[in-house]
Design a protein around this nucleic acid. Structure first.
Lengths: 230, 230
DNA sequence: CCAGCAAGGGACTAGAAAGTCCAAAATACT
DNA sequence: AGTATTTTGGACTTTCTAGTCCCTTGCTGG
């Protein structure tokens, strides 16, 4: 999905060409993440990727196309990472581990830069409607990873049946994205932690309790429960 | 606060000059809000404001200075509006009215454009550290309007004493900002409503209950609270 | 080994955008 | 009124950047 195919037929490329194209995309993705899309010139991309102008235009029709491919690449990377974290999500505890991972990686950057996907989104949304729509799709996909986990929690009895996993997932995403923005401004990951704590408390408010005030079932601690790490 | 004074002495300006300067700022603020800062050229500003190049440079040393003044202006406008909504905040119901106002005005734009301050923030944060710090200050001021309201609610017994109004305010802000981002991408204000519902539920979880399982106002689910239609 | 095609280097162009300058018009000051 | 000062119009310069072009290098297949 999302390789950037168009109506016209594609340019044939050898292994070497593919490597170069990937190197360009890599450099562009990094630059656009840390400096923003608009502030990243093709000359920046050229020099960081160690290529030449003709390469850029050999592999990408123009800057917009490069941006769109960067969006695809970042979304795939992000979704891949989130899948790893969320595919076995099945308990409040699992949600907390996810929160910790998000906060920790944000703290590594001192809160700066924001969300790899979210920062692209806010910059591109009012500019390029195609890109906006693509981003919207990626966010839906991301949100459904959360939603699927919450649904499993409902089915396994961790959450009450009346919990609306779609709304809960939206709440988690909003808290995460809002947390990114506040953290970016404050240069401190703490606001993100606070925001995610709130969202998880909200999920917890739908948890089925036993008599001791603890969550009744801990699904993801029972079965296979692979490596929490990585 | 935030008039843009510098170390060096200021240029004297007559009433007419002040009006022109304001017209430029107004146009720049609007353009930068709808198109983004980077996509707004000085020529755009010139033509929309009906001025000439020399005016721009008479009243602002360069584009960065203009951007910084736009930030100040937008922050003042925003804070003024929020003060109106929040200065008497003292109940969950009041929070819901605030939410409705936020959602409704976002819905007017079909979710587009995002937050007047937040969109500036994400674009400028990694670019101009002075501007980032200023924005951070404005957000703190905004957040303390919420915090003050929540504190009043705690003092008046609407919220439990152990409610941390600072954290609750951060949660509300994150939900709002995350809601803006999701709404902008989806071109639909609904995600913002969901996010703010979550945050308000979280505040409600600190509400003091009476014997009937109701707060001074309400606890358990109000049915989605209100017309999606406006 | 040769032909053909992919990959690469980098100068060059076109145009957009920021920023400068000066003279004319409007306004303020006394 | 008469002078100083602010305001304005808009041409001009400079800088930056997307995008083009062409020639060289190198790989691949027959």
């Amino acid at each position: 999905m999302g390789d950037g195919e168009r109506d016209t037929e594609r340019l044939r490329l050898t292994r070497r060409g593919a490597v170069t194209k990937a190197r360009i995309l890599q450099a562009a993705a990094r630059l656009m993440y840390v400096q923003g899309v608009a502030a990243t010139t093709l000359d920046d991309v050229r020099s960081v990727s160690g290529t030449s102008k003709s390469q850029l235009y050999r592999y990408f029709p123009d800057k917009d196309a490069l941006v769109r491919d960067v969006i695809t690449v970042q979304a795939e990377k992000r979704l891949e990472g989130q899948r790893r974290h969320l595919q076995r999500l099945g308990s409040i505890r699992g949600l907390e581990r996810w929160r910790d991972a998000m906060v920790q990686s944000n703290a590594l950057a001192g809160g700066a830069y924001g969300c790899p996907l979210g920062s692209l989104a806010s910059e591109v949304a009012d500019q390029d409607d195609k890109a906006r729509a693509a981003l919207a799709g990626h966010f839906r996909a991301w949100e459904s990873l959360l939603e699927a986990g919450l649904s499993r929690m409902a089915e396994s009895g961790v959450l009450r049946e009346d919990a609306d996993s779609g709304r809960l997932a939206t709440g988690l995403m909003a808290a995460l994205q809002g947390g990114y923005l506040l953290a970016q401004m404050a240069h401190d990951a703490e606001p993100m932690r606070v925001a995610l704590d709130m969202a998880i408390d909200h999920v917890r408010s739908y948890a089925v309790m036993d008599g001791t005030g603890r969550t009744a079932v801990h699904l993801d601690q029972l079965p296979a429960a692979g490596r929490p790490n990585s």
